[in-house]
């Protein structure tokens, strides 16, 4: 059984190598070009640093606002698509909606929203909201499904109302998880938002694309360095916050 699976995997991989034209020799021949590209990026042109920093700030703003709005909008969807909360007729359609919208990436949403509302950070925010709402809802619903029914029973047995059961039996179990999922999404959204500028949806990606098009590699490298620094700083802050939640 496992040997047959291994055989099939090897066949499939071989076909993938052939069909994608993967060729180590071609890669080896390209190495000098990569080195040349890096050489031409040096030294970074620090004159564009203020512009890059402004772009980075805009990217962080897009990710923050988009994630915050999505975190709230995902709440009802998350509960409606939790098997142990929602009845079947609600659960199945809700899950289907989630899976449908989650299968489209933020960048694709950005293309749609740029066409709809024009260039700038706003379509970027909308794109982040569209993707993050459904992906957070999925994570929320899994947290709700993983709840320990014991404390809920105990609170119910005291004669508590539905609202009190939710507040004292359910929320303490899921709130830390929800917050940690939101922070995790924020980290990925920062990364996703760096390329939103490529399609005109604002932020640091706009500068990167512009300088690359102008063949101004030293300027592009400054933008890249700022991007890396921005992602690392947000990751560090976010993971420290997440550690404190558990």
């Amino acid at each position: 059984m496992t040997r047959a699976a291994l055989f099939v995997a090897v066949i499939v991989l071989a076909w993938l190598v052939w069909d994608t034209g993967a060729d180590p020799v071609r890669l080896a021949r390209g190495v000098p070009w990569i080195l040349d590209f890096i050489r031409r990026m040096m030294p970074p042109d620090l004159r564009v640093l203020p512009a890059a920093l402004l772009g980075a700030l805009k990217t962080v703003e897009i990710a923050l606002l988009g994630t915050a709005v999505a975190a709230v909008m995902a709440l009802p969807l998350g509960f409606l698509s939790a098997r142990n909360v929602a009845p079947g007729p609600v659960f199945y359609p809700a899950r289907a909606v989630l899976n449908f919208f989650r299968s489209v990436d933020t960048l694709v949403y950005a293309l749609v929203f740029v066409a709809a509302v024009g260039l700038g950070p706003f379509p970027g925010v909308l794109a982040v909201v569209a993707y993050t709402t459904t992906s957070l809802a999925k994570l929320y619903s899994e947290a709700v499904e993983g709840i320990d029914p014991g404390p809920v029973d105990a609170i119910t047995a005291t004669g508590a109302t539905r609202l009190q059961i939710l507040r004292f039996g359910v929320m303490p179990q899921i709130l830390p998880l929800f917050l940690s999922y939101v922070l995790y999404r924020l980290e990925s959204n920062i990364r996703a938002a760096t390329v939103l500028g490529f399609v005109g949806a604002g932020g640091i990606g706009f500068y990167l694309q512009t300088y690359l098009r102008m063949i101004d590699y030293p300027a592009a490298s400054t933008v890249l360095l700022v991007t890396v620094a921005m992602v690392m700083v947000v990751d560090a802050i976010s993971s420290r916050l997440r550690d404190r939640l558990v």
Binding site: G150, P151, I155, T158, A160, Q164, F168, G169, P172
Partner: peptide, 26 residues
């Protein structure tokens, strides 16, 4: 009707006092 469970069923992240206060929710 007070109820005590095999698995205690406390709200794990809440303080001891908050858990006892839950008995007043009704």
């Amino acid at each position: 009707i007070g109820m005590v469970f095999q698995q205690f069923n406390l709200v794990r992240r809440a303080s001891v006092l908050e858990n006892v206060l839950a008995g007043r929710l009704g």
